[in-house]
Simulated assay, not measured.
Amino acid sequence: MGDDDNVYETDASVNMYLGLHYPSSGEKEGVSAILPHTNAPTSALRFPQRVGGLLQSLEPTKTNGKALDIGCAVGGSSFQLAKTFDHVDAFDYSHAFVQMAQRMQGEESITFKVPIESDIHETVQSVHEEGITAKIRSKVQFFQGDACQIPEMVQDGKLTTYDGVIMSNLLCRLKDPMACLRGIASIVNRGGVVVIVTPFSWLTEFTSRENWLGGYYHQEEGTTEKPVQSKDVLTKVMEAEGFEKVHDEEMPLIIREHQRKYQYIVSQATGWRKK
């Protein structure tokens, strides 16, 4: 899939993810970047910050003080991690996302469009969450990368070892999720923690069926069909790679399409400590 065909390279996606990652944007203009409605599911807001905060709350053993944000998008979770880690590496497959994260890292004034209805939109300025200072932002290194090629990035000097790793809503968008999980296992320090957040939305346009971790029925000879749940396969894989599960919860998030249409997603969020 080339960049021209990648939905994550479009201006619309960049605008959408800026709203997701920087939910305080628009307050100055009196515009809600995501949810303006009464009785809205506000617990689904600040998803990137909650993912980063979950890793921090699990208190990984500090060996080198480094964290990694795999599939960092436009950087909201990366800056959250930089509050407590000495250095954060953050990469995404999308060039457009990485470029925007780098722009948010500087003092640059960035505006984006909040969709209202069809061609109608409000323009707001991107705003960092409280406490994200220039010093904190300077601790993050953003770059483009492929989550299925972690060993190659280590060999190229782009990645090292880490005390903490997060990967949110990416696993089921990878060509080879098993390659990614094995790669992660090879770069986590002992006592380090990996947080994997995913809705397990397997689609053949992203992942060929033979590479799905679950979401299908399996039948052995002489037996009835049994459903294969992705969360069970993930547990087996992570345990085989030397991790123990230390956290499990359902984590909601919301993405705005326009003022009356949203994606409400409930991802499985698990924490894994390296033995």
Rank of each mutant, 00 (worst) to 15 (best):
E220W: 14
I120Q: 11
T161E: 14
T63F: 06
V154N: 12
H128D: 09
S32E: 13
D89L: 09
L54Y: 05
E117A: 15
K113C: 10
T111M: 14
G71F: 00
E241N: 02
L253K: 07
V154P: 13
V140I: 08
K83A: 01
I255N: 03
N211M: 02
Q219Y: 08
Y8T: 01
Q49S: 07
I184R: 00
M16E: 10
K245S: 11
Q141H: 12
H37W: 10
E225S: 13
H258E: 07
Q155I: 15
G75K: 09
G242R: 11
Q105G: 08
S168V: 13
E59F: 04
E241A: 06
E225P: 12
Q105H: 00
T207V: 05
L81G: 09
G71C: 09
Q219M: 03
V127F: 09
G164C: 01
E205M: 12
V154D: 13
M1Y: 14
T63L: 07
L18I: 14
L68R: 00
R256V: 00
K158C: 10
L45I: 05
G157P: 14
G271N: 02
F79M: 09
K245T: 13
T10Q: 04
Q80D: 00
V188M: 00
Q141Y: 12
T204H: 03
G75R: 09
L174D: 00
F206R: 08
V266H: 03
H87A: 10
S32P: 03
G214T: 02
V7P: 02
I136Q: 03
R173E: 09
K274Y: 11
K139V: 09
Y8V: 05
S230K: 01
K62C: 15
S77D: 08
P177W: 06
Q263E: 12
T198A: 04
I150S: 10
Q125N: 15
S201E: 03
L81F: 00
E59C: 11
I255Q: 03
Q259C: 14
T160E: 15
A269Q: 10
G19S: 06
A12Q: 10
I187Q: 03
G53F: 01
I187E: 10
L20H: 05
S118P: 12
